[in-house]
Nucleic acid binder design. Structure first.
Lengths: 323, 323
DNA sequence: CCCTAAAATTGTAACGTTTCAATTTTACTT
DNA sequence: AAGTAAAATTGAAACGTTACAATTTTAGGG
């Protein structure tokens, strides 16, 4: 690869002049700049970002760290982040890291947005600093240089419970995902709390554990129906839409009508939700907005503004056929 | 940030000893290494990746460059790439770049996989080199250090045409996406060719142009039906599943039964396809496999093996209700 | 034609690593 | 106790930039 030194030599100027020219500094005469640029083009010079960033102690890169790339509602959030990052003339790199988290740890990014349960709190707090703030999407962390941008999960659960109670349901079951999910547990907690507040009893036997996939929801419900002797709840709230869809499938297989016999409510409002039959009543989470707010929060911090709370994410209950 | 120099000073050794110790070189005595590691831990030393990579002239990073993050079938491909990259102990960064393509151009990656129509052929061939090979997923490029891993689009179209012809269809329409899409145009070309080969005539008036979104498919078909006087084809082939779903919607609104009156075939087999009603007959493209093959191809090249052709991607026709 | 100020150019150090070559220390052997 | 080979440690250069400070060139005024 051609370096600045090569350009300088070929153009008959010093390395500093070459550097200034490439960066269009007003220190250099137009004539010289022109000459340097021409040579640079000729030999296909490309600046080395590593060297530049090392020198400048700044990469102009934002990292978005995920646990993985699967998940139907992920893209919108990422797109939101991307939009905002571009607007600020930074680059976005999206990484799914499971152990080393190298790019996060080795000064590759000027800031990071975290949605990755593989990354431990302790690691985050140990590497964050004034110059490299973080925004976390999947946990609550109390640190001067870390801000949380969270989905109002408990509020969502409360909306669902209120909705079901208004429809005269009194025994409500719950299908939860894997318990390492912050959102999942918040949704479950919110559900429990709201039920409590309305004076209803939650029967722990009506809690099905699955893992957020459609199939796990299907299996969980199928299994539940097998061991449930006698009556079952008239409604099930689910930790996400996929499990709700799976559960409906299992219910229908066992000749329960949805929503007439059992109402099923999801969470997230993924694209599929309006296509399945019956279409899914769920909580609509504006994922793109989530990404936008996360990025805006990060840029505020990069701008040394720390004294604010991120905008809350507006959610709403999308009432469809399933309940 | 603490640097190696800080560690060295505090441990009372030279910078080189500190470096060797951190990297667990056998040159250094266990005792010293232990001491250095302890100090490094104490002051929270983290190596600076930029400096390291600059020195080593190697980042151990693979870049996946996309046009954007939206699109339902994207994640599986990305996941495939990620799997393979991890297996090889590299890091993957996924970027959606629209103009500067900074990370691609400024020596940030040791190799790249390209699925981004914003990046021009000319740029790719001008920056590729023996040390930084590319795999392109959205074009055909003839360059010693670039390999193409393409979806067998023409083959897919041929499978569809054969299938429809075997079902006695003789007038077949086509809904194409935006013409900047390599895959899209290949599919259309393949369709034309296959039709030709079977001796059927393609009526150019039966070509609808849309832009790959469901809504555009809906609008395109709606519009077509409005201006089509008299008979319409008994089958429509679509450049992707989304448009097919939109088109079906428009057909049904106009009281055409699918597939009885008009068969509609998609391409891609996105998740939705099996959920819509009627469920969609389509070409199943193994997206994860695509990503895996792309990455494997890249690593072959990084391993200085250039004399091979990437494995072809197996596709199959998934026959469902829509045709 | 000389002086001076402004404009243009350049040498050099620095960013934080790695690694070669050189030096120092250690541990045997005789 | 001296000599030596092996082991351990270190100094310095290099990776490709940027930007300060220093130097050289240019141009204008007397």
């Amino acid at each position: 690869m051609a370096t600045l030194k090569d350009v300088a030599k070929r153009a008959g100027v010093s390395v500093s002049t070459a550097s200034y020219s490439i960066n269009n500094s007003s220190l250099i005469s137009e004539k010289t700049k022109e000459k340097v640029r021409k040579v640079a083009n000729e030999i296909g010079y490309r600046p080395n970002g590593l060297a530049k960033n090392l020198k400048e102690q700044k990469t102009n890169i934002i990292g978005l760290f995920l646990s993985g790339f699967t998940g139907p509602s992920l893209n919108d959030m990422v797109e939101g982040v991307q939009t905002e990052v571009m607007k600020n003339n930074y680059e976005l790199v999206v990484c799914a890291s499971v152990d080393s988290h190298r790019l996060l740890v080795e000064s590759y990014v000027d800031g990071a947005i975290i949605l990755n349960y593989h990354i431990e709190d302790q690691l985050l707090t140990s590497i964050v600093n004034e110059k490299t703030p973080f925004v976390v999407l999947d946990r609550k962390l109390d640190n001067p240089f870390i801000k949380n941008v969270l989905i109002p999960n408990e509020e969502g659960s409360r909306m669902i419970v209120d909705y079901l109670v208004s429809k005269e349901h009194s025994r409500i079951g719950y299908i939860a995902g894997a318990n390492y999910s912050f959102d999942g547990e918040q949704r479950l907690n919110g559900f429990r709390k709201s039920l409590d507040e309305t004076g209803l009893q939650f029967n722990e036997a009506d809690l099905i554990r699955a893992d957020f996939t459609e199939y796990s929801g299907y299996l969980g419900m199928k299994n539940y129906l097998q061991i449930a002797s006698g009556k079952i709840p008239t409604a099930f709230v689910c930790g996400n839409d996929e499990m709700a869809i799976g559960a409906i499938h299992a219910l229908q297989e066992n000749h329960f009508r949805v929503p007439e016999d059992v109402a099923v409510i999801g969470f997230d409002d993924i694209t599929l939700s309006r296509y399945v039959s019956p279409s899914l009543t769920t909580i609509k989470v504006p994922r793109k907005q989530w990404g936008i707010i996360a990025a805006q929060t990060l840029f505020q911090m990069l701008d040394k503004k720390y004294d604010f709370d991120p905008m809350p994410l507006p959610i709403e209950l999308e009432s469809r056929e399933s309940g």
